[in-house]
Computed example of a mutant assay.
Amino acid sequence: MDNTDLNHGLERYIGNTIRELRNKQDLTISDVSDLTGISRGMLSKIENAQTAMSLDTLSRLSRALGVSLSTLFRNYDVPNGGAQMVRQGEGMEVVRRGTKRGHTYHLLAYDQGPNKQFEPFLITMNDESEVFPTFEHPGTEFIHILDGVIEYRHGQKTYVLKKGDSLTFRGDIPHGPENLIKLPISFLSIIIYNTSNTN
């Protein structure tokens, strides 16, 4: 993209911003002309990106519209968003090795592309008779208890975790639920992978 394209993009952005601010305040082009001393023809050209303008002109326009100069440029050249939203209850249900009844994993985000960077799960447990296997995986895991009380094993140590508690640990050391103390239990489990080691 050359400088002409960049300048025209900026002029279009500023023109649209000025028009939006003017319309929000129910001001006509004539009103803004009276407030700034800039002719109506010039204001029309500015709003339609048909002319460049000086900093003095921009400053007069920003004062007339009651905003700072920086506000005029606030959203210029901001990258497009691309957030992934999963609504309550819509996470993909995943079956983990060794899990059976009364124990569900909902994957809350899905990596696009060849390498997984992280996996966030919402895990719910409501059957105290279930026996859980231990898990091992690459990366680091973070869990945060949303409800209930659980005894959780990591290596040779166990931790009693209550609502609001968190635990962070290496995923390659055997870990998993040891005892379900107070049901129902729900917690977030976020696995962060070292991307240089993933396939």
Rank of each mutant, 00 (worst) to 15 (best):
T134K: 10
R40K: 15
D34Y: 05
L55T: 13
P174D: 06
N75T: 07
H154A: 04
T104V: 11
L61I: 15
S33P: 03
N115P: 01
P177W: 00
L180S: 00
I190K: 03
G37A: 06
D77H: 12
R40A: 12
Q156P: 03
L27A: 03
T198K: 08
I29V: 15
R87V: 04
G82D: 15
G89N: 06
D172M: 13
P174S: 12
L27F: 15
Q50L: 14
A49S: 13
T99A: 09
L55H: 07
Q117N: 09
L188S: 02
P133M: 08
V86D: 02
Y110P: 09
I38M: 05
L108F: 02
L61Y: 06
G171C: 10
S44T: 14
I150V: 15
E93D: 07
L146D: 00
E90I: 03
I18G: 01
H8W: 09
M125K: 06
K24I: 07
N199T: 09
G15E: 03
V32T: 10
L108W: 02
K162L: 00
R12Y: 13
R22I: 09
H137K: 11
L35G: 01
E130T: 14
R97T: 13
K45Q: 15
I29M: 13
F132H: 10
R22Q: 09
G98Q: 09
D56C: 02
N199Q: 11
Q88Y: 11
D56E: 14
K24R: 14
I190L: 15
E178I: 01
I181Y: 00
F132I: 02
Q84Y: 13
V160R: 05
A109P: 05
P174H: 10
I185P: 01
N3D: 14
D56F: 09
Q112C: 05
S186E: 07
G102M: 06
T99S: 14
N3R: 06
V86P: 00
G81W: 05
L188A: 01
T36R: 03
F132T: 03
D111T: 07
I145Y: 00
R60G: 09
Y152I: 00
L167N: 04
K157I: 01
L72V: 04
Y193S: 05
S166N: 08
L21H: 12
V95M: 10
T4L: 11
S62W: 01
I190T: 13
G102I: 08
V149N: 00
L161K: 00
